[in-house]
Design a protein around this nucleic acid. Sequence first.
DNA 1: CACAAGAAAGTAATCTATTACTATCTATCC
DNA 2: GGATAGATAGTAATAGATTACTTTCTTGTG
Lengths: 202, 202
Amino acid sequence: MNGHPKHLPADERRAATVEAMVDLAAEQNPSDITTTAIAQRMGLTQGALFRHFPSKDAILEAVISWVAERLLARVDKAAEGATSPIAALEAVFVTHIEFVSEHPGVPRMLFGELQRPGETLPKRMAQTLIRHNGERIRGLLEAGKTRNELHADLDPDAAATLFIGTVQGLVVRSLLAGDVTRIRSDAGGVFAIYLRGIGTVQ
Amino acid sequence: MNGHPKHLPADERRAATVEAMVDLAAEQNPSDITTTAIAQRMGLTQGALFRHFPSKDAILEAVISWVAERLLARVDKAAEGATSPIAALEAVFVTHIEFVSEHPGVPRMLFGELQRPGETLPKRMAQTLIRHNGERIRGLLEAGKTRNELHADLDPDAAATLFIGTVQGLVVRSLLAGDVTRIRSDAGGVFAIYLRGIGTVQ
DNA sequence: CACAAGAAAGTAATCTATTACTATCTATCC
DNA sequence: GGATAGATAGTAATAGATTACTTTCTTGTG
């Protein structure tokens, strides 16, 4: 007879909503996630969500903000702690792999947002997040060139694209195997090829 | 007053349905494509589709069959015409890029199918298609090793994963730019890095 | 004229969002 | 320190739209 769950402050409910959505995105196509499913995961009724968010898209916006803060912060921290651009690049890669392992639904969500027709706010937010992330990677690649750790003729744009592709390839592989842990176990071998590709000798 | 379009044989309507779905997938999230949208694109009413297909999933199955036939045939043809495993790999890459440029919705569709929960037929078909494609690539990589065109210590599984990731990275980049033609123009630079990664000297 | 293909309208299910009401928390006042 | 008022956060029900799919009516064609 648990008619009413404990009241929580709005902030915490909003955070819990984001987490529920991120969790659900790991289990199914993000664009198929309903507000009913989100509420059920939180132990609430569907209508209660709309007391904290004006629309479903507003929930999506909150999720993308959440991802942007967490991912970029971890990426920056990983890059700062490294002694060279290449070491930073590897640390950033590990950060990506760990983040995607913890939240496999996130790349699917961002990727899915990019495909939406028209100009929605969550779509623009996903675009800027992915762009900012790409700029950080390209920055490391250019720093690696100026320090002669990378081939002088390396195209940083292409290398940044392949960096993202490296992660995406691992995601596809884990989806095929139906086993998220493969992302971590396969990451080393794939990144080794990438590293050689951009011109580092181990 | 074009109330009734010309009658077509069932086969051609089925083929046109597949093409309409592939076209629509290039413009929006494939899982958001409705039967109404497909019919509208064909100049038909929504109900008319169910005269040729028993369900929406049956349409999806037809689309994946279509992709499997066309893509794998083109991949095999590209590989056959090459004089060495590495040349074949590059031809196969070009084939992928051309195919994805012509039908940008296809990878999104296959990728999306993998995310569906449960065990549906279209999902299994997408899995086998991607697996078969991956096996062809891995086969070329192994042939390259035995012919000493590739590093002896290359991990073919990892290299095949990165091959797929190379294409995926280009797809993401084109989505970000909102410009499909970028796939083709950016492909060369990215593949050059991949080639150096798997151990070929140019 | 008979038939197959499509139009048109309908159905049941599902989804987002809203509404009217109810429970819980918090702070104030005597 | 309880009682209590006001604000906050919840439920249940439902409206309005949309979806996949069905059924029935209509028409062009062989």
